[in-house]
């Protein structure tokens, strides 16, 4: 019980996000209307994904240094949950875009690069699945993980900014740039980012603990 205080904290954060996100006053903006509330659910998926994938690359590097399969298990499970967050981010974004940008996929630079980034991580899963030997699998996929993460950062945070985009903070688009910073929204939004990321972290730890048990049974650790 004592060790799981952060799980209760996660749940209470998310309860606050659901209630506040749906009920609190939101700015009345053209085109966005009530959909501005999706901010508290769609965007945290991407923040959560990047943070979980950051943990994944950290443990990939740790594995490359230590050769301890425990680190590899952690790396792959953080990546798995990160990918799920990314998929949820893409799908929620498509729903939101249908009603604000008039099309689920408008080839917006950030949409495209997010999709490419996810494909790079799909290749990570396929790569792991295609190697039989546990040690080789861990080593090769850890190296790939490092490359994948930096490619993702370039795709999500650098390339979309070099051109016009419908997303806020990319190129000039006042209608959508607006919702980026506002104290009222920020309170709920930052809680949402923390809450959703911690929830993803929790799920990842569950899978990691199962992996540890499996490794122990097969006497890898």
């Amino acid at each position: 019980m004592r060790k799981s205080w952060w799980k209760y904290l996660t749940v209470s954060k998310l309860l606050y996000v659901i209630v506040a996100g749906l009920l609190f006053d939101a700015p009345r903006l053209n085109i966005l209307n009530e959909t501005i509330r999706a901010l508290h659910f769609h965007v945290p998926m991407w923040f959560g994904m990047v943070l979980l994938l950051l943990l994944s690359i950290i443990y990939a590097i740790k594995y490359l240094i230590s050769g301890n399969l425990k680190h590899d298990a952690m790396s792959v499970e953080f990546a798995n949950v990160g990918i799920v967050f990314g998929l949820l981010g893409i799908f929620t974004g498509m729903i939101w875009a249908t009603y604000t940008w008039n099309s689920p996929w408008s080839n917006d630079p950030k949409q495209n690069s997010a999709a490419i980034g996810l494909l790079i991580y799909f290749a990570y899963i396929i790569l792991r699945g295609s190697i039989e030997d546990k040690m080789t699998k861990a080593r090769v996929s850890s190296v790939y993980n490092v490359i994948a993460f930096f490619a993702l950062i370039a795709l999500l945070f650098i390339l979309p900014r070099l051109t016009d985009s419908l997303h806020p903070g990319n190129g000039g688009n006042p209608g959508f740039n607006a919702y980026d910073l506002d104290n009222e929204l920020r309170k709920v939004f930052y809680t949402a980012v923390l809450g959703w990321t911690m929830f993803g972290f929790w799920v990842a730890t569950l899978r990691i603990r199962l992996k540890f048990i499996e490794l122990k049974r097969n006497e890898y650790i």
Binding site: L29, G169, G172, P174, N177, A178, Y179, L181, D182, L185
Partner: peptide
């Protein structure tokens, strides 16, 4: 810092 924002 590179973002152009329209304040709410």
């Amino acid at each position: 810092s590179a973002q152009e924002k329209v304040e709410i």
